[in-house]
Amino acid sequence: MSASSIIEAVMLVMVAVSCWLGVLGMWRMREPTQALHYLSLPATVGAFALTAAVFLKNGSNQASWKTLLITFILLGINSVVTHASARAFRARELGHWRPREGDPIEFVEDSSETEQS
């Protein structure tokens, strides 16, 4: 077994482990908003490890570059979809998504609004 096929195998194990950790984390979380965090594990660690494994196996060919493209798409999509989902959960619960008094998050006044008022 050559060094590159060993590294390839290690990368594939990383893909499988990151997918399973993400899925189990999502599955175990009680709140959907908490479960959203676990989408990022396969979408980042899993995707990058898979890209490395494909490059090791196929070198620089169509499949490798398209896998890299898939990784960047998953990276970008995952953050947008997670934010949109969390916002939808909040709007569904409160009727709007804007911060409220007493929220556990810091509310930073928008400077342009304060100047106008």
């Binding site: 676990y38 396969p42 979408a43 997670t82 989902s85």
Partner: peptide, 14 residues
């Protein structure tokens, strides 16, 4: 269910 759907699409892609 929506969170499950989003994770499913990532897993199937990989």
């Amino acid at each position: 269910r929506l969170v499950g759907l989003e994770m499913t699409s990532i897993i199937i892609t990989l």
